[in-house]
Every structure is written in structure tokens, then in C-alpha cells.
Nucleic acid binder design. Sequence first.
DNA 1: CTGAAAGCGCTTACAG
DNA 2: CTGAAAGCGCTTACAG
Lengths: 334, 334
Amino acid sequence: MLRPTSFDVAERAGVSQSTVSRALRGSPGVNAETRARVATAARELGYVVDRHASSLRLKSSETIALVTICRPGEDRSAINPFYFALLGSIAAATSARRFNLLVSFQESSANFRADFVASGLADAMIVIGTTSNRAAWDYFAQAQASGLDFVCWGSPGSPFHWMRSENDIGGQLAADHFIASGRRHIAFIGPQQSPQRQFDERRDGFLATLAAHGMTAAVAEPPAAADRHAQGVAAVQALLAAHPETDAIFAASDMLALGVLQGLKDAGRRIPEDVALIGFDGIRAGTLADPALTTLEPDIDAAGEALVAMALEDDERTRSGTRIPVHLVVRGTA
Amino acid sequence: MLRPTSFDVAERAGVSQSTVSRALRGSPGVNAETRARVATAARELGYVVDRHASSLRLKSSETIALVTICRPGEDRSAINPFYFALLGSIAAATSARRFNLLVSFQESSANFRADFVASGLADAMIVIGTTSNRAAWDYFAQAQASGLDFVCWGSPGSPFHWMRSENDIGGQLAADHFIASGRRHIAFIGPQQSPQRQFDERRDGFLATLAAHGMTAAVAEPPAAADRHAQGVAAVQALLAAHPETDAIFAASDMLALGVLQGLKDAGRRIPEDVALIGFDGIRAGTLADPALTTLEPDIDAAGEALVAMALEDDERTRSGTRIPVHLVVRGTA
DNA sequence: CTGAAAGCGCTTACAG
DNA sequence: CTGAAAGCGCTTACAG
């Protein structure tokens, strides 16, 4: 018998099929001895409940769908590791609830897809990934307009249910750290026109704290480039040309910061002696840099847990505006 | 109406429910006009086929389950990025077939699970991840012994259906590169007792090529440490103590190589002037290192595609022993 | 070319 | 506490 059903278990245990179902689900009001008999029969037959039949009946699949938006044409290994880390923590939060996780990487209309909940495949959907793929976010905005609900990381512009880091506090911590270590020629490098509001928040928290100390900062927009790392390399070149006295840089993300680090070395600056550098995200590659990158690290575990809880609405949290705490991890660059 | 069914579409299109199903599935022998009417009705209602009902009927879920084995207690962001890249390429191969991908990170008996196919949730299962988690691979070996089938990356010891890189060729390319660049005091750093046969294959291809040129290499086993990076740092310290003349190192994986790179810098060696270094895996972090890591890069896209094809047995490939091509990517360290 | 009906394998309200 | 039966929403063999 290739795949035993609950009827097979019933026959072997000498009970009805409905009793098998109740016993295996742990329904109350099943005789302990009957329950044990059923359990034994099920084990002996290698019986596993058919999830399609079960989900069809229960109208719930105990599954979360996670969509990760990529840059068009982007190599899978080039995806920002921050999103992989987030994927991992979402998987952990999902698994803790004994839910399944369906993942989908989407980059163009060739594979845009938002019907996971509509098809019953998932109970809720989470969307993460680059904000730079406008077409993708437009697609999901449209899907939302047609009544589809989901939760996302960041802030791709539309009135999605979102969750973000405490970006302003991160900016503030970066500024405090630079000020305390005596830096005086400070700069911020980050996208200025990005739909990713998180970058603005980091910048604004940073600038506001500097202003409170009577200081200002040069603000540099990275030029267009293949990826954030390349943007960082190019941005710091332009920055040093315009402001050679720069002695501290806060970069809006770690990948950008890693590019900035490379650009600073190329320009012959010593880090952190000549220029201090702080990134944002806490990606693993930062710990491997030389010197290791000082960064603002969001609590990724908390983010995964909160995203899943929010998607499932299984607690009383509001469905939008949740903030994930960040803390400054001081390593070699600042 | 919260979730329209095929009966609702049928009513609106003025046909029977069976015709709706046939029209939407593209079954032959449906009048073109009828088909169009059904399509319109479905669109207007926002109808999406219920995958549970469909899968239950078809006895196929068009889903692949991907299990990634982690180190117990390992932080999600500490997972070797090679496996995330592999996950990404498996997702791409899955999506190209219009299949779904269910992912699961497993680390201890608290969340070991192999019933994805038995429960009907997936049509096939792929297992990747660290070979260092013996308990996990034992669990899957046991599952296989009970008749469960799957395909895995690497070589966790048991007679699984596996796929690996062309490790011997990689080792050979590394040796050729060192010899051609005039290195004479060559070493290999990698686990010697690992169930991961891939490490042995890399070493053996490397040593055999050196031997063919009348050369030998010091072979260093990394000491136990928190992760591969830490192992690399520690291993190179010991190696330099025993063989201070070392001028070239082949490390069994990139994470190990990145640790070796750090250890070499700590020891004051210039790279590549004093010591040349080659890794294996082609992870992104290698490109961010300073100098950028020279490495053997497996064709990850081919690996994802081949794993999915193998899992689905949808081509004539043998179910075991497939090799993925690797090529030498020369960057800064060698 | 289309419809009525059976059946995929469950869960649970209803009877006993 | 347990069983017989309905029904979740599809797909397709069978009739027409």
C-alpha cells in the first residue's frame, strides 16, 4: 500500500475512520485506550495525515507565503544577505508555530505572483526584498487594491502593513558615537529619492542629532551602479573629492558601507584613524571586513517573529507601524 | 462572497462546473467561445483554483520541499551563504517549472521533519546544509531507510542520492594555479574526518596534481571552533607555526578561506605577495574581502536546476553521482 | 462539445 | 465515547 489513509488505520485499529481522525487530532472525548490503539496502528502503517484533504476541510493550510523581491536579472547569490537573514528568522518563527513556509523570489512580470492566499496555499503572505524594483511593488500595490492583504518589511511607498527598524534611533546612535569620538567632518551616504523610507529615517535621525549639537553633515547620494556595494565605492570617491576633510561617514546600509570601506581604502585613507565608518543592517559580511564593520544591527529574530505574528494577526499588535529595535555594534571601523 | 468556487464561475458563465474546470485547465475539446466566457467570468469574480482541492484530486501538489540543515543553536544569519545561494537557485529552478517551494530549516530533534512528501505537501524533497550536524543526517538516513526518498547536496555519508561539485577538478585547478605562479611551499587546510566527502575530494585532486609535479603539501586539520571562519583563523596560526615557509594555501571552503585570510593578516603576512590563497564555493563575501578572494566557483544555477530535475526525476539523469562544473575565479588573493 | 456524478482523504455535526 | 454521513472544491471517466 503506497499511501495508507485513515481508513486503513481504522481497519487495523478496529475502529471507525472518524475515530481515527479524532484520536490523531487529539480531540477530547476519545477513550485513552482507543487513542493508543489508533496511534499504534498509525505508526505501524507509517500513516501521515494528508494535508490537502485536511486543509480543504479546515479551510486553513497553516502555511505562510514569503515573497522576496529581487532586482531584475539579479543573480540569486547577489541578493542582499540581510533578506536571507530575514528569511531565516521568518522560517524560525513559522516553524515555532508548526506552520509551513512557502518561498518565492520574484523579479519581473514573468514570475510576479500574489495568489498564495487566494488559492488556499497559504493563510497569510509576507513580502520582503529590494525596494528598487518598482514594477514589483506596483504589482503588489495593485494586488492589495484588489483586496489582497499582506505584511511587508520596509516601506515601498504604498499604504501597506509594514514593519521597520527603529531607524531614527539608529541614526541617533550613529551620530552620538561620532560626536563622542571627536569626529567633526561628518557625512551621510544614502539614497535620497528611494521609495525606501527607511533610508530617510536613518538620515533624519542622524542629522537631527547632529543639529542638536550644532553640527551639520554632508549628504551624498550614491550614483547609479550595479548594486549597493558598487554605489558605495563610487559615492565615497565623489564625497572625498567634494569634502576631503571628511572624518566620519554613516552609510544607509551595510552593503553600501562595505563599498564605502573599499572606496576609502582605494583613496588611501586609514580606517578608522582617518575616517570612521558606520553601516546599518548587521549582515555577516560586515564581520568579515577588514577592519570589521561597526553597524546598527536590528534584532532580526524579533523582526521575523513580529512579521509572522502580524501576518497571522494572532496577537493584538496593530497591523502597521511596528518598529524593531536596533543597537550599535562597535567593531573596527568606528 | 469571500472565496468564489468553480460553481460560482459556472453560474456566471452559464455553463456547468465541469466545463469551468476544463476550460480553466486548458483541456482540449472546449469550445473557444465557451472557454472565453468562462475566462471572463473567472476574472470578474477574481476566481483562483483552490490548490488543496486540486492537489487532493490530482494527487500531486507541484511543490518541492527544501530542507536546510543548520548547526544546532546557530543564528540564522550565520548560515553559510553558500546554502542561501543554493536555496535561491533551487527557487529559480522550481519557479521555472511553475512549482512551489516549501522551505524548512532544521537543526535538532525539536524540529526534525521529513514528512513533506508523505503528507502530500510536496512531490519531492531536497536536503542541503551543513554536514556537521550528525543527528540531522542520521534522522534523514533513518527516514530514507523507511522508504522515504530525497536528493541531497554534498555527501553526508549515507547512500543518499547526491549531487556534488567537480571537487577533484577544483583541487586540480588550484594546484595548477599555484604551480604556474611559482609557489613552492604549499598547504591544504580542511576538515579531514568530515562526513562531507567533498572536502576529501578537493584535497585529493589538489594533492594528486601536486604529486604529478613531484610536489607535496602540508595538510592541516582546522581545530574545533564556533564556525568555519573561526576554524580558518585558528588553523592558519597552527600551520604557520609548523610551516613558517608556507607560500600558498588552498582552503576547502570560502568561509574557511576567509578565516585563513584574517589569520594571515594577523600574522603580518602580505597576501598574495607572501602567501597566496584559494578558497572554494564562490560566495559573495569573497568578493568583498580585501584582497578579494580567489576561489573555485561551482555553477550554482546548474546545481539548483539539476537538484530539482533529479528530485522530480523528470529527465533521464541518473539519480546519483551528478557533478556540477566548477571554474577558477582569479581575484586578489592568488 | 457539455453535463451529471463519483471520488480524492480528510473533519466534524449529528445520532446513538 | 463511537459510528455513519455530509461536505470541503476540485478533476475526469462516463454518457449523451
